[in-house]
């Protein structure tokens, strides 16, 4: 994660969480947070191949 950030990937795009199958509320909370952070950054511009079209 540190190396990704080091070479110029925004750290908000990378998240690690430990969520038990019993922690549904935590799961929802984390997913919401992650989505918000990534949305705020906008689409990824770096580290993707121009040819890579998602079908």
């Amino acid at each position: 994660m540190n190396l990704m950030e080091h070479m110029g990937i925004e750290s908000d795009r990378i998240h690690f969480s430990w969520i038990s199958s019993a922690e549904s509320t935590k799961f929802v909370k984390v997913v919401k947070e992650v989505t918000e952070k990534v949305k705020a950054l906008g689409p990824q511009q770096h580290f993707k191949k121009n040819d890579a079209k998602v079908a």
């Binding site: 070479m7 110029g8 990937i9």
Partner: peptide, 17 residues
């Protein structure tokens, strides 16, 4: 040398590499 890169912002880091 590592600290020099750490001090850059995200775009600068990307461009450096």
């Amino acid at each position: 040398d590592v600290q020099e890169i750490e001090a850059m912002d995200t775009q600068e880091k990307w461009d450096y590499f």
